[in-house]
């Protein structure tokens, strides 16, 4: 079993909101509309949504790393 480490870069975020739409349990935005990670190690049932969120980001500001649990 591997876990997933989620990081996001607010300096390249363009506020498309795609991550919030696709994985609201894991991504949020600050007052400037920039990405905030709520849960850097989301449970397995959210991995699919998180991967779709990462693929949907127009500036590839989300990085996913597979990690041993």
């Amino acid at each position: 079993m591997t876990g997933l480490l989620v990081t996001a870069d607010p300096t390249t975020c363009v506020t498309s909101c795609m991550c919030v739409y696709r994985a609201p349990e894991v991504f949020d935005q600050d007052d400037d509309g920039l990405v905030v990670v709520l849960d850097a190690r989301p449970p397995a049932e959210l991995h699919d949504a998180v991967r779709r969120a990462a693929r949907g980001c127009p500036t590839q500001s989300i990085t996913l790393t597979d990690q041993p649990l």
Binding site: S16, P58, T59
Partner: peptide, 20 residues
């Protein structure tokens, strides 16, 4: 369609500001 990363709002730094 589930995975739908279309280009109708562009991409990158000029991604449509009004898309949401």
């Amino acid at each position: 369609r589930r995975e739908n990363n279309h280009m109708s709002f562009g991409s990158g730094i000029h991604y449509c500001a009004g898309a949401p």
